[in-house]
Amino acid sequence: MAKTGENSGVKQVKARYVTYFSLACMIAGIAIATWSGYAYWQGYRAAQPLNKQSALHVSASRKEKAVRPKNGERIGALFIPKLNLSLPIYEGVDEAELRKGVGHYPKSALPGKNGNVVLSGHRDTVFRRLKGVGVHDQLIVRTARGEFVYRIKKVRIVGEDDRTVLVEKPRPTLTVTTCYPFDFIGNAKQRYVLIAELVRPRQRI
């Protein structure tokens, strides 16, 4: 009699632990799903149709000074006319910036300047339709310094460790990178790269 009582006591304690454990799983699961869902939605909604684009918020001081923008600062917008898309550009390519929109690689040139401007973004949020653009399509960057029209010259699919993409260029260039393949769950091991050149009168050096 005493033995069964002890046994059921142990069982009760065990049952309680299982209940706690399952509740903990549910709470943690909901928290993770909500948080990552929010993070995903942030990037997803950053992609706006062209006509609905909000006016660019750039501080007045930025216009006067030619200093490097701070990390996380909004520096402009990327327009893709072919996809009827407007995307915000933030300085920096850390997760904090890529979550909100397109990131500008800090060591690369600023839009409109000589050199290579590098913009990166997530393939499943801001650039989810990027495979719809190709050679000769326009990419337009608007910053406080003006609006710059680039035309795509080349589309490359390279490995994630390729070291020939983030390089200096003789002509003003815009390089857009994202992960590839586009519909792939998990860590995609390739990169989809668009190389576009600034449309401007010829200047041969």
Binding site: I32, A33, W35, S36, G37, A39, Y40, G43, V93, L98, G103, Y105, K107, S108, N116, V118, S120, G121, H122, R123, D124, T125, F127, E160, D161, D162, R163, T164, V165, L166, V167, E168, T177, T178, C179, I185, G186, N187, A188, R191
Partner: peptide, 16 residues
């Protein structure tokens, strides 16, 4: 840029 490594653009949120 000296042939830098490309930024990690893998978005983990859908898997998470």
């Amino acid at each position: 840029m000296q042939g830098d490594k490309m930024p990690n653009t893998a978005s983990p949120y859908l898997s998470y």
